[in-house]
Amino acid sequence: MAIVVKLDELLHERRMTLTELAERIDITLANLSILKTGKARAIRFSTLEAICEVLKCQPGDLLDFEPGS
């Protein structure tokens, strides 16, 4: 998919673990791992909002469009 999820980089910058984020946005670690590894088919606005709120970022910081990837 041409949409790349940059959750790993954001977590690294914020010095936060995936488990911590999962607890704070109330999403299972398994689902968040699916999102992080780019295996998710879609992302809900509510999930995006929760992640952006906790990581203090914009949706564009989390998602990237890389044609051909």
């Binding site: 999403i27 689902n31 295996k39 998710a40 088919r41 809900r44």
Partner: peptide
């Protein structure tokens, strides 16, 4: 349903 299951 498959789409919904892959929605996070």
């Amino acid at each position: 349903r498959e789409d919904l299951e892959g929605t996070i």
